[in-house]
Design a protein around this nucleic acid. Structure first.
Lengths: 154, 154
DNA sequence: GAAAACATGCGCATCGGTGTACCGAGAGAA
DNA sequence: TTCTCTCGGTACACCGATGCGCATGTTTTC
């Protein structure tokens, strides 16, 4: 069940994390297998839990969400209740795409997106107002994505 | 061509960025359309460029990549040649999932993954050795993903 | 070393989903 | 009103996904 993963399995994972819309025939050709054999491998990988799901990647800029920030947040305390209250609140804000509890000087790192500077000002006020226990906020704007998600190194 | 996007289109985008493996029938039921009408809408959204692609999301931890870092990098200079050399090198390192050119005190933020502490030590040395022009490196480890990617707010 | 048990790939058959053609309803303009 | 344009529904053809049987190769066991 665990990790008898060979080079073909890795090839399949590499291929579908870049493009999952391929047909089994194409995927099989790519990894050197017939469509049905490839299909069996893929189903097995799904059952074993290597594949968390399938998603459409939307074009952020095309949708008008041209700005992206990494916001570092420190809280006034590290007590469980403070963390839990913050985390519960952060999940309700749709502009926050990700939130990581961090080891280091900041407690959390948030990835947020918004339309423009005006929207960011509003969002920033909104965050500070709605997220409890905030001590310090540092916003870092992404100017350009030098390397965007190319997939895990499998 | 541009933005005559109505509520149904947004519903479709919201649905497929969470799960793109649904059948047209299911997707249609979800947004209140027949399968064919829904299919037409989706193709139109693809043609208009709102959908960048389809991807399988792999289970990072299941694949043994249990550690995730946000690494802040400052360079010795901001000249074009320095930036270009750094960016070219960063693209060749598979553990670097993302690299953002930033506005703020750090020049770049990298998202990297690795197996364990030993692998991180190796990776850290590797980064410093292979990336040219580095002045300062700050590694921040993600302890837990409070909110993982739930999709753009469309 | 032989044979059984297992793994893995291929080809084929079947079935469901995708994609298309056609029709009708509703909105807007002349 | 009438023409037209847009958009959704229905019906259907066909392609691709899914499951199965068979062949081949490999490992284990006696």
């Amino acid at each position: 069940m665990n990790l008898p993963m060979d080079d073909i399995d890795r090839k399949i994972l590499r291929a579908i994390q870049r493009d999952s819309a391929r047909s089994m025939q194409d995927l099989g050709d790519l990894v050197g297998l017939s469509a049905s054999a490839c299909h069996r491998r893929l189903k097995s990988l799904e059952e074993k839990g290597y594949i968390a799901g399938y998603r459409a990647m939307l074009d952020r800029v095309r949708l008008g969400l041209s700005m992206q920030f990494f916001i570092e947040v420190s809280l006034v305390s590290q007590s469980d209740t403070t963390l839990e209250a913050f985390e519960k609140a952060v999940k309700t804000i749709p502009e926050v795409l990700e939130c990581h509890l961090m080891a280091g000087q900041s407690d959390y790192i948030l990835r947020v997106v918004c339309e423009d500077a005006t929207a960011f000002e509003r969002l920033h006020r909104d965050l500070v107002a709605r997220l409890p226990g905030i001590a310090r906020v540092h916003s870092n704007m992404s100017i350009r994505e030098v390397k965007s998600f190319g997939g895990l190194p499998v």
